[in-house]
Lab assay of single mutants.
Amino acid sequence: MGMPNRKYADGEVVMGRWPGSVLYYEVQVTSYDDASHLYTVKYKDGTELALKESDIRLQS
């Protein structure tokens, strides 16, 4: 078993793309699913969504 190939840690605050949009919002990573390679993130309004790594970026 190798290390999970994840870029962002639980609790890390990053920018997540809103689905169907080009806009990124501040989100907190809450979990990562090794099987689906999706991150569960929480937006400031409390919305929780699963995002692909390509829809997440570090805060500038």
Rank of each mutant, 00 (worst) to 15 (best):
T40P: 00
A35T: 12
M3S: 15
D34F: 09
M3R: 15
D55P: 00
D34W: 09
M3N: 15
V41I: 03
Y39D: 00
K7L: 12
P4A: 12
T30C: 12
S60Q: 12
L23T: 12
D55L: 03
Y24R: 02
D55F: 05
D10I: 13
V27M: 13
V14N: 00
A50N: 13
K52A: 12
N5I: 15
I56A: 01
Y39A: 00
D45N: 10
V29L: 02
S36F: 07
Q28I: 15
M3H: 15
S54K: 09
E26P: 11
T47Q: 09
L58Q: 13
S60W: 11
D33T: 03
A50S: 13
Y24T: 02
R17P: 05
A35P: 04
D45E: 03
K42M: 12
V29D: 00
E12L: 10
T30I: 15
Y43I: 07
D33V: 03
D34P: 11
E53D: 08
L23D: 11
R57T: 09
V29E: 00
E48Q: 11
D55A: 06
V27N: 00
G46C: 06
M3Q: 15
Y25G: 04
R6H: 05
G2V: 08
G16E: 00
G46E: 05
L23A: 10
V22R: 13
L51C: 04
M1A: 15
A35S: 11
L23V: 12
H37D: 11
D34K: 08
Q28W: 09
S21N: 06
T47H: 06
R57W: 11
H37A: 14
V29W: 01
E12Y: 04
G16T: 08
L38H: 06
V41Q: 01
M15K: 04
E48V: 14
D10S: 06
E26M: 12
G20N: 09
A9H: 11
L23M: 14
A35R: 12
D45P: 01
H37E: 15
Y25A: 07
S36N: 11
M3A: 15
S54E: 14
H37V: 03
G20R: 05
V27G: 10
R17L: 08
S36A: 10
Y39G: 00
T30A: 09
S21P: 01
Y32F: 09
W18Q: 07
K7M: 09
M15F: 13
D55Y: 05
G11I: 02
E26V: 13
E53P: 06
A9Y: 10
L51W: 03
S31Y: 08
T47M: 07
K44M: 11
N5E: 14
K42V: 13
K42D: 01
A50E: 13
Y43V: 07
W18E: 04
D33G: 02
P4M: 10
R17Q: 05
S54V: 10
